Amino acid sequence: MIALSNSYYGNTWRHQMVESFEEAAKQAKQDGKIQDYIIVNGDGTTNQQMSQMADLILRKVDVIAIDAASESALNGTIQKACQAGVKVVAFDSIVSAPCANTLGFDFVQYQGDMAREIAKRLGGKGNIIIVRGVKGSAPDNDMYKGQTEALKEFPGIKTVATVYGQATTSVAQSAVANVLPSLPHVDAVLGQGGGDDFGIAQAFEQYGGAYADKMPIISGGGSSNFIQWWSERNRKDGYSTVSMNTTPGIGGAAFWLAYEMAKGAKPPRTMTMPVAVVDEKNLDEYLKMPPGTIVSPSFSQDWVQKTLLQAPAK
């Protein structure tokens, strides 16, 4: 039996991630590969996730795939799982427990790359807002590190506000709208994805003023609503940006990796997933995405076997 322990279920990205895990699990159960699977979602707190993990250990699941609320706070519980013979793969928001395999994204690298691209588009000068993601999570810390380290290369760029958007459209919109009246003119916004990009755009559109004709450069996080908005602005006034996002399809990859581990596979200790990139060259390819979804390929059992299990050890 394979279990998913998802610490947070409050944004589009996490919903899609859970759906991709469940889709793979249902297929595996239908094909007779697993007896059953369990999915538990949390409220973002480590205490609740520790309690849910303890229950999964008592239920003697074979593997727990965990999207963690904290990089370190769950290590003791994870160690207990390993000692009880339960294998653990931490993905997306990973952990530092030595007995867990990890399947993550290079958050520092890709957010640094996006920050540099936008800084170059600004000519190395201007005011920016940073909209952080899920407070306390490892991805938020890593993405913020990537952004701030990249911006050190551009002393002419000033961060005039830093807010938390919880990787959610409505929260990001409210957070940006609340600080805009007190800020000088904003030239760009660096978000973290999960739908915050469209919320940021909506905040500026509603604020209006100088932004009615010239919107700041907003880093895209792969949401379909933002891509639609971006395409319309591009046709209207040539609006240009770039979008990079972690793919919620990692849920499916995490399931198949857990399945292979349950069968005895010994994957590398650390594995890295690709990110999705959208720019004006491929923007039109994503215009038919359903509203409220995030750009993401799906990852099959075959992909996991060929790409993750045969990846060089790190």
Rank of each mutant, 00 (worst) to 15 (best):
L4Q: 05
L4H: 05
L4Y: 11
L4P: 06
N6D: 10
Y8W: 15
S20H: 12
E22H: 10
A24N: 08
D31W: 05
Y37V: 01
V40L: 12
G44I: 07
G44Y: 12
T46S: 14
N47G: 06
S51K: 09
Q52F: 08
M53V: 13
L56E: 14
L58F: 11
L58C: 04
R59Y: 09
A65T: 07
I66W: 07
A68R: 13
A69Y: 05
A69I: 03
N75D: 13
G76D: 14
T77N: 09
K80N: 14
Q83I: 08
A84C: 10
K87V: 01
F91G: 01
D92M: 09
D92I: 06
I94A: 10
V95Y: 02
S96V: 02
S96Y: 12
A97M: 04
P98F: 15
A100R: 11
T102H: 06
T102M: 08
F105T: 07
D106P: 01
F107H: 04
V108E: 12
Y110S: 05
Q111S: 10
G112A: 07
D113I: 06
R116K: 12
E117M: 00
I118R: 01
I118C: 03
A119P: 03
G124N: 07
G126A: 10
G126H: 09
V131F: 07
R132W: 07
R132A: 13
V134T: 15
K135Q: 11
S137E: 12
A138Y: 15
A138F: 11
N141E: 15
D142T: 01
D142K: 10
M143Q: 13
M143G: 14
K145Q: 11
G146H: 10
G146W: 07
T148L: 09
E149M: 06
A150M: 11
I157Q: 08
I157A: 05
K158P: 00
A161K: 13
A161P: 00
G165K: 01
A167C: 08
T168C: 02
S170I: 09
V171E: 13
A172S: 13
L180K: 15
P181R: 15
A188Y: 04
A188S: 12
V189H: 05
G191P: 07
G195F: 06
D196F: 05
A203N: 00
A203V: 11
F204K: 14
Y207P: 04
Y207G: 01
P216M: 06
I217T: 12
I217M: 11
I218V: 14
I218Y: 00
S219E: 15
S219H: 06
G221M: 05
N225A: 06
I227R: 13
Q228T: 02
R233K: 15
N234V: 02
N234C: 04
N234H: 15
K236H: 03
K236T: 00
Y239A: 02
V242G: 03
V242W: 02
N245I: 08
T247D: 01
I250C: 03
A253S: 07
A253Y: 14
A254Q: 04
Y259Q: 00
A265P: 08
T272G: 04
T272W: 14
P274T: 10
A276T: 13
V278P: 01
E280Q: 15
E280Y: 07
N282T: 02
L283S: 05
D284N: 15
E285D: 09
P291R: 15
T293A: 03
V295T: 04
V295E: 02
S296W: 07
S300D: 00
Q301Y: 05
Q301C: 00
W303G: 04
L308P: 01
L309E: 09
L309Q: 00
A311Q: 15
P312H: 14
A313V: 05
